[in-house]
Design a binder for these strands. Structure first.
Lengths: 225, 225
DNA sequence: GGGAGATAAATCGTATACGATTATTTTTAC
DNA sequence: GTAAAAATAATCGTATACGATTTATCTCCC
């Protein structure tokens, strides 16, 4: 006897997928009527899903205008990534790593090394972190982490991360696994924190670049006058 | 130029108030039609608010039956309070306590000492913690804490906390303030953690009591047969 | 060509309607 | 009297309708 499908849950998954694929542009209103036609359902469950994503802070509701993916500020990026790092360290410290779990980490690490498209790499990186906290007994903590990671995924996929970035990540993941294998949790935690700080630095760099690109566009249009 | 009122936000506040006042019984479906009549609005924004509270995990949606306040399990209580304690310690470690903030803490502590009804004490205790993290620069962290505390408030108000509990809290708050005044953050953090563990122990005790009370009721009805 | 104002079109947020499901009440059988 | 089945009422989740607001387009004037 299977659980009934609630449309808002399906819509929420679909929306998250669209967001993660970068198919929703920052600042642009998500069009309810278009979504309704695409999904062939009414706007009611769509709105319910959207308001849930608003509650998650993945989306922002602009009254009378609709729902948008908000721009990520430098400050918010910093706060998000620092919090993720801190929480994941807590989760790792609360986890017992048996052989099976280490094996899964190793497999995902191998997969990350063998994968070459940005989206596949991102997915693999995400999986690595999911496996890392998979056996954490504190489900509240893992739920929060899951939510926070959902929030940053969109921005990461947007910044078509390059090869040197993944080489760096690769090395850090490797070191994390090794520390875990040696039951050296403090070291694993330390490298894990560094790992997230690496991501933060990269995202911040891209945000600054993006900002100065926008500034140049504005400057050019001023010169046109 | 003020922001337009979005009904679901007002409804959400109202629902949270009802929940915190214990006016919604655990496990019983929240009646949409009754709420619609009470608030004199349609069920649409009510459902939007409810689905947001579902997303917050304050409520649970039971398909085709509606929304309920879920029962708090011992495990979940432990995970919630441990996570709150850990996060609040992080927030305190990231906060600079100036004279003004310490003064506010002192005032709230005095208020807690002078207040005698359970609901006023709970409100004061909550305020104390809010002031404690008020100047934390990491707004992501404070948002998460705010959400987590919302989740446990209902259960705390339900367990009409007694005088010895508040005496204990009082002492711990006093010690936290003193440690902060001495710029001794590690000690403040330690006592803060103990503070939340005290609350956890009390809530767990009440949950166990409640459980055995329910067991007795079931046993009596079996004997009747 | 650009800005301002007016108008039309599109869209949002909420209300209402309705079929499906659950809860409650009534009826039937033992 | 009790349990099970049937009938009825209540409610949920979704679709549709509609007034309010925003966006896009058009026209006029400088």
């Amino acid at each position: 006897m299977s659980k009934p499908t609630i449309l808002r849950d399906s819509v929420k998954d679909h929306l998250l997928h669209l967001i993660r694929q970068g198919e929703i542009e920052i600042g642009k209103t998500i069009n309810l009527a278009a979504l309704s036609r695409t999904l062939n359902i009414s706007v009611t469950p769509i709105r319910e899903a959207l308001t849930q994503l608003e509650q998650s802070r993945i989306l922002k509701a602009v009254p009378n205008r609709g729902f948008i993916v908000p721009k990520l500020s430098l400050t918010e990026a910093e706060n998000l990534y620092r919090t993720i790092a801190d929480l994941e360290v807590l989760a790792v410290e609360g986890t017992v790593y048996d052989e099976q779990l280490v094996k899964e980490l190793r497999n995902e690490q191998l997969h990350l090394q063998q994968t070459h498209t940005p989206s596949a790499r991102l997915a693999s990186r995400v999986n690595f972190h999911r496996i890392l906290i998979k056996n954490c007994p504190n489900t509240i903590l893992t739920e929060i982490l899951h939510d926070l990671e959902s929030r940053v995924l969109f921005y990461e996929q947007m910044f078509v991360l390059d090869a040197s970035f993944y080489e760096h990540i690769d090395n850090q993941n490797e070191a994390i696994i090794r520390a875990i294998e040696e039951d050296n949790v403090p070291t694993a935690a330390l490298i894990l924190n560094m790992n997230w700080m690496t991501v933060l630095e990269y995202v911040q760099k891209q945000l600054v670049l993006q900002q100065s690109t926008n500034y140049e566009v504005v400057s050019l249009s001023v010169l046109k006058q």
